[in-house]
Design a protein around this nucleic acid. Sequence first.
DNA 1: GCGTGTGAACACATTCACAGCA
DNA 2: TGCTGTGAATGTGTTCACACGC
Lengths: 217, 217
Amino acid sequence: MTEDGSGREALVPKAVVSRLSLYLRELQHLHRKDQKTISSSKLGRALGFSAAQVRKDFAYFGQFGYPGIGYRCEELIDKIKRILGTDKTWPVVLVGCGNMGQALLGYRGFAKQGFDVVAVVDVDENVLGKAFEGLVVEHIDRLPDIVKQHSLQVAILAVPANAAAAAAEQILNSGITGILNFAPVTLSVPKSVSLVEVDLAMELEQLAFSVFQNKTQ
Amino acid sequence: MTEDGSGREALVPKAVVSRLSLYLRELQHLHRKDQKTISSSKLGRALGFSAAQVRKDFAYFGQFGYPGIGYRCEELIDKIKRILGTDKTWPVVLVGCGNMGQALLGYRGFAKQGFDVVAVVDVDENVLGKAFEGLVVEHIDRLPDIVKQHSLQVAILAVPANAAAAAAEQILNSGITGILNFAPVTLSVPKSVSLVEVDLAMELEQLAFSVFQNKTQ
DNA sequence: GCGTGTGAACACATTCACAGCA
DNA sequence: TGCTGTGAATGTGTTCACACGC
């Protein structure tokens, strides 16, 4: 990681960070197939980026490659994980245990990338006290305790739209500093709290537009 | 919609299209609260964009606003829907009826934004023939028939990573022209096919990075 | 006055092209 | 020769600032 001498990280374009996740996914795929090294041009081709883009992206963080050889997969995986902060496991709390929440609980992909759901909260009598994937659903009022107990920083919000604002309020009050929001509403959070939004209907809209546009050239 | 006289749509930046979905969501929210008009500055503030950004975004598609007044919510909703192509309902097929697939089936938000899941396919004996949310799971080999029958253009791919490539292949062969991919693998599709990727683990990585960075200023 | 639409200025991101190293 | 790292050039997206209409 590069420091600029002022004691703070050089700021990294958001676009670079999202590509970092894609590189990581692809590199892990290559590593499983026992590939030792990869060039920027091949990695770029696999993901649909230019070779220059790949090299520039990594250059934000230092010198990762070997001229004439390329990048060593395993080494690069470690470096990207360290940059993203996922070289250590992140404990997370799931807020909302309906349809979407239960599906997320069953999704094994989180664990593989270094995230561990350690608690589930809700307000619905129908799920409170029940166990899903080995976790007993607790009341959302217990959130501050849970956050302290596990030193949590991140919550996944998966409640219906009409419950989202209230749930978000409780999350913010519990000391959480990052929210992954699946509810289709715009949350307003202080600048000190990070927010990533995933709206499934919006993604479909984007796709519809793209299909639509493709059809009319 | 603007035509540039050459018979093809002026091309719209991807960033604009994704904000269009956000505007739509916010405008529908305002409309439900019976608000008739909104200014670019207020709409921008609600979503975290500048007023100029909002106006420029709409300007790509024509003149939507009224000087001194702002934009009429209901009218703007209709126009955005027409641009996105969601003024008519899109029938879609769900490929994969495991954890994630079942959650998506139960998610009511799709219908609200103009998407209707009309068929579900899988390969797993354990779900084939069973009904979820009123839909009987059919074998993926029936995809070409199903696509023809419903004139489908869009598929939602929600299978495990190791099954994704094969399923994608079958989707492409069925005549589908748009895929919403939830599997954490990079799919390669011809240019004529639109692709939107949603990788939940990647979203958490983005959040982790942001939290991480926020903490160290 | 308020608020849109838009050219011009600016900031940011991507690609080019090449020096330098294995 | 093959491939990285990087300044320079290009391209794209965002903000500014103001003319015009209500």
